[in-house]
């Protein structure tokens, strides 16, 4: 989750800092850390006005505002009544056990995989987990053509799980650049919690 540290700033600076962060990139979730209750309420109001759901929290001497909302596409549609699916998005888990799509031509398969991952965002808020196992973990390391796309997903709040056993097997543990290293129990639990699992 993106964190904005606005401690030590007087009104309206924390609101402006939050506003600037949202203009820079679309965030489906963020945490703003403040040092006084007035700034906390102001930032909460600002995020409310931008369509976020907000949660206030006190952490030691700090005041947090945690904001969450659906992805950009959902926001664009927010003018009209939201479809039911958007109100209660289903949880889709996509599991990639390979770095190429389908069998036949490997070059084509790699291109298709890249295209597939880039198009995944069209699933909107229903995309809940993206899991990489076996050869799939090679998509999460430095030099991967989709690394930036995956990092953008993560920034927007999507949880990406990468199989630790697989990374270890290919000796790629230190080269992983995106996602959370995970184990089979997490993957199985995610499968159980998901409304839909799509396996590639």
């Amino acid at each position: 989750m993106k964190e904005i540290d606005a401690r030590g700033l007087a009104c309206p600076a924390p609101v402006l800092q939050t506003k600037a962060a949202l203009q820079e990139e679309e965030l489906s979730s963020l945490r703003v850390v403040l040092d006084n209750a007035a700034s906390q309420e102001n930032v909460q109001r600002f995020l409310d006005s931008q369509g976020y759901e907000t949660l206030l929290q006190a952490e030691g001497a700090d005041f947090w505002v945690i904001g969450t909302r659906g992805n950009a596409r959902q926001r664009q549609e927010a003018g009209g009544p939201a479809p039911e699916a958007a109100l209660q998005p289903g949880k889709i888990m996509v599991m990639c056990a390979t770095d190429r799509m389908g069998f036949g031509d490997d070059e084509l398969g790699k291109k298709l995989m890249i295209n597939f991952l880039r198009t995944l965002k069209e699933m909107g808020p229903e995309l809940w987990r993206l899991v990489f196992v076996n050869n799939g973990v090679k998509l999460t390391i430095d030099g991967s053509e989709v690394l930036e796309d995956l990092q953008a997903f993560e920034k927007e709040g999507l949880t990406i799980l990468v199989c630790g056993t697989c990374l270890d097997h290919f000796d790629l543990l230190v080269r992983k650049q995106v996602g959370v290293t995970t184990n089979m129990l997490d993957i199985v639990t995610a499968m159980q919690l998901a409304d839909k699992v799509i396996s590639i």
Binding site: C11, V15, A37, A38, S39, E41, N42, Q44, R45, S49
Partner: peptide
């Protein structure tokens, strides 16, 4: 502006 959180700290005090 108030709805956007542009409220001086003095107002909260």
């Amino acid at each position: 502006f108030a709805a956007m959180g542009l409220i001086p700290a003095g107002a909260y005090k």
